[in-house]
Structure formats: C-alpha cells, structure tokens
C-alpha cells in the first residue's frame, strides 16, 4: 500500500469520527485490475477500504451533484476534481462550507486501454512501483514507464495540484506545459476542413449513444438533458448520423468555459471515441478570447454568464 492511501484513510476516518462530514467520496479497489471504483464511505471503520493510485479513473466531482445540498461531503480531489468542485460551487450546486476537500497532487491516471493494447492479453494483476506500472498476464510480467501509458488528458494536464483544498496530502508537483496541453487542438485546427469534418464523422459514427460520457462528466448535471428533451425538439437528437453529431456538438458546447479537461468523458466511453479534442478547443477559445480558465478563481463566472458591455467592439461581423 502506498503512503498516500494510508494518509487518505486516516484523514477520512478522522473526518467521519469528528463528524466533520457525512460521507467521504473516494476510491476502493475494483473487481478488475487497472480499474479502481468510486467508494462512498459513511462509517469510520470503512475508511480502510479506500485506495488511491493511478487506476482511479473517475472524476469524483461528478458525484457532488448527486447528493442533497444539506449533506456535508468530503471529496478526494486531484487537480481536475478540485477545479470541477470550484466551478460547481460557482454554479451554486453545493455550499463550499459543506464541503471538505482532501487535496492530492496527481501524477496522472493510467490508461487501461493503452496497457491492454500493449500486452494484447487480459490483465490479471496490476500495480504501480514508483515511475513504473507492472502488469501480470498469463505470460508473465510486463513493465511500463508510467509516462508511456498515461491517459492522454493526464499527459497534457496543466494543473495537477488541487486548488482550494482544505488539506493537501502529498508533495506539490510541477505545473504542466501549456504548449503540450494545447498541441492537439492546434494540430487539429491546422488540418484542411474536409479532413477535420471527416474525423468528426468517423468518431461520431461509432457512438452507441449510451451517454456514459455525460454521466462521467462533473459538469453534466442537468435534471433533463437536451438530448432527452423531445417536446419541443430544438435540434435533432434521434439515433441518426445527424442526431449523433448534434449530440457530440452540443454536449461539448455545453462545456464551454466549464470543462476542466479531466478526460473522464473519454475514459468512460465504451467505444473509445475521441471527444476531448472538442472540449479542449472550447477551453482554448475561452482562454484566448476571455482569458478564462476554469478553476483559476473561486468567484469568476464563466464567460457565457459574465458578459459585459466591454464586449462592444467584439464580433463585429
């Protein structure tokens, strides 16, 4: 067991014992290797179940909106999760004083697909050792450098350190490299328009409309999603190429100025459909146009909510 897991268990047990929170949201070991699963701990004895490692795929901030506002929540927060919590608090989804954020500087999530593709086999066991991931299959042990098997979103993460946490466990990490973070958006943008469209058509064409991407996203918390809204139907949302394209366009667009670039949507997708190139473009534009970055401040409203007359000379045509 790593020292971080130990520290998290102790802190969770203390929070429950001292009745600072009603529930601690963290991770426990899953039934499959490479995949930990979310855990909701309400009794201090259960804190022993908690684990923390690179196999924790979900964005835990997605569970914030699933609890009533009176509940006091303790949430294990990596960089992206802490930024999502900030954005959700700004959107009045929970009171900050009913939250206790256990911050953890994050070294990135391991992409189980990258591992399975490389070993070409079912994984029987997996563990981390420093900068390495060690995977056991029927034919023995495979070792990977962590950096080679990180999820794409984590490899280009800008802010691995939690913001606004009540306590931070573990040592702070260096910030990410903006050039690396935005490279995929700029590269995609540099392609000819027909290629960009072809890629979009190909990716959306495989979508089975399971909405796992929506369920995994901390910022998709609408009681009724536009895609389930049928009367009136403002845009096509049927299971047709057009309906699915609209789903991808609008889902992404609803994240403009809100997406925390956690990549949870992409990790949740059973079809391995790429979609962070969509939301990242919107985040890039929000930064370029309005100097806005989600989670950078705990009071600044996102650009679509914070319009002003200073926009006077923008968008002339």
């Amino acid at each position: 067991m790593n020292s971080l897991t130990l520290a998290i268990r102790q802190e969770a047990a203390r929070l429950l014992e001292e009745k600072i929170v009603d529930v601690v949201i963290g991770f426990e070991a899953g039934t499959l290797p490479l995949k930990a699963q979310p855990a909701f701990i309400t009794r201090k004895e259960e804190a022993e179940k908690l684990v923390f490692n690179g196999f924790c795929q979900n964005n835990l901030a997605a569970y914030l909106t699933r609890f009533p506002k009176e509940k006091r929540l303790g949430i294990i927060c990596r960089g992206c999760e802490s930024r999502a919590v900030r954005a959700l608090v700004i959107e009045h989804q929970h009171d900050r004083d009913k939250l206790y954020l256990i911050g953890v500087p994050c070294t990135g999530i391991i992409d189980w697909r990258k591992i399975e593709r490389r070993v070409g086999e079912n994984t029987l066991q997996a563990r981390e050792e420093g900068d390495e991931v060690i995977v056991t299959t029927r034919d023995g042990e495979h070792r990977f450098r962590r950096a080679d098997v990180l999820h794409d979103s984590c490899a280009r993460c800008l802010h691995p350190n939690p913001v606004g946490a009540d306590i931070v466990l573990g040592d702070p990490l260096p910030e990410g490299d903006p050039e690396r973070a935005w490279a995929p958006v700029l590269e995609f943008e540099a392609l000819p328009p027909e290629e960009r469209y072809a890629y979009f058509v190909q990716e959306t064409g495989r979508c089975i409309r399971c909405y796992a991407c929506r369920e995994a996203c901390p910022m998709c918390y609408c009681t009724e999603c536009f895609v389930d809204h049928t009367a009136p139907r403002w845009t096509e949302s049927m299971i047709t190429p057009g309906g699915t394209q609209a789903w991808h366009i609008v889902r992404a667009f609803h994240q403009a100025g809100r997406c925390v670039s956690c990549g949870a949507c992409e990790r949740a997708c059973p079809m391995d459909i790429k979609m962070t190139y969509l939301v990242d473009k919107l985040s890039y534009d929000m930064m370029q146009q309005y100097g806005f970055e989600v989670g950078a401040s705990d009071e600044k409203q996102p650009p679509f909510a914070a319009f002003t007359l200073d926009d006077r000379n923008r968008f002339v045509r």
Binding site: F253, Q289, F304, A305, F307, L309, D311
Partner: peptide, 27 residues
C-alpha cells in the same frame, strides 16, 4: 451580450469541425 458570446463561440466551434466560417454571418 450573452448571445454574442455564445453564438461567436459556436461559430468558431463549427468552423473547427470543418464548416466554412462565412456560412454564418452576424449583423
């Protein structure tokens, strides 16, 4: 004001996906 921000961003987004920018015009 709100509309301008949203619609401008939306046009940029559709352009990113391959739509010709000139198809949507603001006045």
């Amino acid at each position: 004001l709100g509309a301008r921000r949203q619609l401008d961003a939306f046009r940029r987004f559709l352009t990113y996906l391959g739509l010709e920018e000139g198809r949507i015009r603001f006045a």
